[in-house]
Nucleic acid binder design. Structure first.
Lengths: 138, 138
DNA sequence: TTAGATATCTCCAGAGACTATAGGTTTGGA
DNA sequence: TCCAAACCTATAGTCTCTGGAGATATCTAA
């Protein structure tokens, strides 16, 4: 039986975060010691590693909750799990596209400024004041 | 003189968001009508457009506050404004890099799954359970 | 002028995913 | 047996809004 601190060390998930996941229903409420402290088993370790991994990949809590629910019906078809992952992939790709546009715009703005003239002439400030100086819509 | 609703329509910033910006000190407290409603002038319109543009570029409130403070000293050199924009550009680039790694990992996971077999064999679920199936560290 | 519709006011709560603090209790090792 | 470390609960804070409740102001049409 592992304490919450042991579980934390083994998974790299902070102690308050573990309690938070329990509260959010991602982890089942743990057994308790006589003194009311949480005690975990290997199963919980695996579950928490699953959650951690999914969070690292950027899945949000509700998607993870759904994946966990699915994984508890091992004989059903996995179309939904696939869909969740594919949707997330799409949202990651969308985010990348948006950030690339921002990157271009910012790079353009920064490249016009050598940091060495007066604020009133600064391209950074002027760009922000005047959307017309932009290359693209955003 | 513009009401808060007029200002909102002209800038595309929602009414509660305008009040929020005032509260955060990005917009000066507006003049009030006899009945205590906010009344704005062209100056405020420009300021709000500046804020909106900076937010669209992903700058956070404190960076915007700093840029506004700088823009009020038009004769000082603009090194700080340049630095704020350049720092932000770097953080955008870092974010893009991270998301690209995620994208690769997710694409790999999704590509192994046709959504058409049992959960117990699903590569999506298995990948999340077993970090060892990953290509890279994350 | 007055009624009614729309806009505005303040204050408060919620979103998401934690993180931190305070004040108290349990555990484990010397 | 004692003490430090780890644990417990409950609550508030992070960031940038967004939405609601209930009250007041403003505008338009009759």
């Amino acid at each position: 039986m592992l304490s919450i601190g042991d579980l934390s060390k083994r998974t790299g998930v902070k102690v308050p975060t573990i309690r938070y996941y329990e509260q959010m229903g991602l982890l089942a409420a743990a057994e308790r010691s006589e003194g009311n402290q949480r005690r975990y088993e290997r199963q919980d370790l695996e579950r928490l590693a699953f959650i951690r991994h999914a969070r690292d990949l950027g899945l949000d809590i509700s998607a993870i909750r759904e994946l966990i629910a699915l994984s508890q019906h091992p004989h059903q078809p996995c179309g939904n799990a696939d869909r969740i992952a594919a949707d997330h992939l799409k949202s990651v790709r969308d985010k990348i596209e948006k950030l690339k546009k921002l990157e271009q715009e910012l790079a353009r703005i920064v490249s016009h400024c050598d940091g060495d003239h007066a604020i009133e002439d600064c391209y950074v400030i002027r760009s922000l004041s005047d959307h017309g100086l932009c290359d693209s819509e955003h």
